[in-house]
Simulated assay, not measured.
Amino acid sequence: MVATSDMLIFWAVVMARFFIPLSIPKYPLPGIIASLLLDAVDQTIFQLFTDLPLEGYQGYDKALDIYYLAITYLSTMRNWSNHFAFEVNRFLFYYRLVGVALFELTNLRSLLLIFPNTFEYFFIFYEAVRMKWDPRVLTKDKLIIIAATIWIFVKLPQEYWIHIAKMDTTDWIRANPSNVFILIGWTAVMIGMAWWLLRDLPPMRSGFSIAAHHATFRFDSLRAARVKDNYTSKRFFDDFIHHELIEKIVLVSLLSIIFAQILPEVRANDVQIAFGVSILIIINTELSQWLVRRGTQWRSIVKEFIVMSIVNLILVLLFDFLLARYEGSIDLLNTLFFVLLLTLNVTLYDRYRRVHLWSHAAITEFEESKKGIEIKNN
C-alpha cells in the first residue's frame, strides 16, 4: 500500500510541474528557469523522499516537458516585440517538436541530436537581454548568429552527451573530479561569446525588467476595430481556413501524437489521433470565432479555459464512442490528462495570438509613421 506521505509528495511535485510553467507568460525568465530546475530534480525528489516506483511516471514526465515548452512558445506570442526573433524561435520550436514526434514514433535516439532543443536556450537568451535592453536592438544578423552559436556549441554537445553517449555529468565528475575544470572552461567560453555578441548594444537601462510587457488587447476598443479591418486580422476573425487555424492544427496534432506515444494505454493509431484532434481544433476555433463575432469577450482566461474544457470533454466522449466502432479505444484517465493539457495550450494560443496580431500591427504602424516623418524631414 502506498504511504499517504508519498502520495502527498508525488502530487505536490506534479502540481508544481503543472502550475509553475503558467508563470512563464508573466515572468518569462524566472518561470522557464524554475521549470527547468524542477524537471531536473523531480525524480531525485521521489527517490530521496518516497518509495514510489517511477516506471509509470516516465511518460507523464515527458508529457509535462513538452507541455512547458509549448507554454514557453505561446508566451512569445504574448510578449516578444522583436518580430524576427519570434519567427526564429517559432522555427526552432516546431523543428524540435517534429524531432520529438519522430523519435517517439521510431525510438531512434539520433533524431534528438539532429533536432536539438535550441529553442529553449534561445528563449532564455532573448529574455535575459530583455531584462536590461529593448530586445528590438537585436538585429537579424545578430539573432541568426546567436541561434547558430547555441545550436552548434551548446545544444549539439549536450544532446550528444545525453542521448547518444548516455553520459551523466555527476558520474563523469565523480569518476574524475578534475573534469569540473573542463565544464567551468566551457561555461566561460560560452559567457565570453555572449559578451562578444552583446558588446555593441546601447547602454543598459537601470534595474531589471523581470515581468514581461505586452500589448493589452480589447475587442471593444477603437484600435481593435481598426486592426480588425486589415487583411491579417480579418483572416483570423472571419475566414474558415486561415494561417492561424492551420498552425493550431499542426501544433496540437504534433503534441497529440507525442502524448499518445508516451502516455500508457493509448490505443488509437496516429492517423486517428491526428484526425480526431484536427476536428476538435476546428470546432474549438469556429466556436471561439462565432462567439467573437457575436460580441462575446473572454475577460477571464480561466473562464475561457473551463468552458472550452467542458466542450472538449463532450467532444472526446463522442470521439471515444465513434472510435469504438472502428476497433479503436482510449483510456479515460489518460484522455482527461491529455485533453486538459491540450485545452490549456489551445486557450493560450487563441488569446496570445490575438495579442500578437495586435502588437505586430501596432509596431508596424509606428515604424511606417516614423519612416514617413523621416522622409518628410529630409
Results as ranks from 00 to 15, higher is better:
residue 10 F to D: 10
residue 11 W to D: 10
residue 14 V to L: 10
residue 16 A to N: 02
residue 18 F to W: 05
residue 24 I to F: 03
residue 28 P to R: 02
residue 29 L to T: 00
residue 39 D to S: 04
residue 42 D to W: 01
residue 46 F to N: 04
residue 51 D to W: 01
residue 52 L to R: 10
residue 52 L to F: 06
residue 53 P to W: 04
residue 59 G to Y: 07
residue 59 G to I: 06
residue 63 A to V: 03
residue 64 L to G: 01
residue 79 N to T: 08
residue 95 Y to I: 00
residue 124 I to Q: 07
residue 127 E to N: 13
residue 140 K to A: 13
residue 144 I to E: 05
residue 150 I to E: 05
residue 151 W to R: 09
residue 153 F to A: 08
residue 157 P to H: 09
residue 159 E to N: 06
residue 162 I to D: 06
residue 166 K to E: 11
residue 174 R to Q: 07
residue 176 N to A: 09
residue 177 P to R: 14
residue 178 S to Q: 10
residue 179 N to S: 09
residue 179 N to A: 05
residue 187 T to I: 13
residue 188 A to S: 14
residue 191 I to K: 13
residue 198 L to R: 15
residue 198 L to H: 10
residue 207 G to M: 09
residue 215 A to N: 10
residue 217 F to V: 14
residue 219 F to K: 10
residue 222 L to A: 14
residue 224 A to L: 07
residue 230 N to R: 10
residue 233 S to W: 00
residue 237 F to G: 03
residue 243 H to Y: 03
residue 250 V to S: 08
residue 256 S to K: 06
residue 258 I to C: 12
residue 263 L to A: 13
residue 264 P to L: 14
residue 268 A to V: 15
residue 270 D to L: 11
residue 273 I to K: 07
residue 273 I to P: 03
residue 274 A to Q: 09
residue 274 A to P: 09
residue 288 S to P: 01
residue 292 V to T: 07
residue 296 T to N: 02
residue 298 W to D: 10
residue 298 W to G: 09
residue 304 E to I: 00
residue 306 I to L: 15
residue 314 I to H: 01
residue 318 L to F: 06
residue 323 L to G: 07
residue 326 Y to E: 11
residue 328 G to W: 05
residue 335 T to G: 15
residue 336 L to T: 11
residue 339 V to G: 04
residue 340 L to R: 05
residue 348 L to K: 08
residue 351 R to D: 04
residue 353 R to N: 12
residue 354 R to A: 12
residue 355 V to E: 12
residue 363 I to V: 05
residue 363 I to N: 06
residue 367 E to P: 01
residue 369 S to M: 15
residue 376 K to L: 15
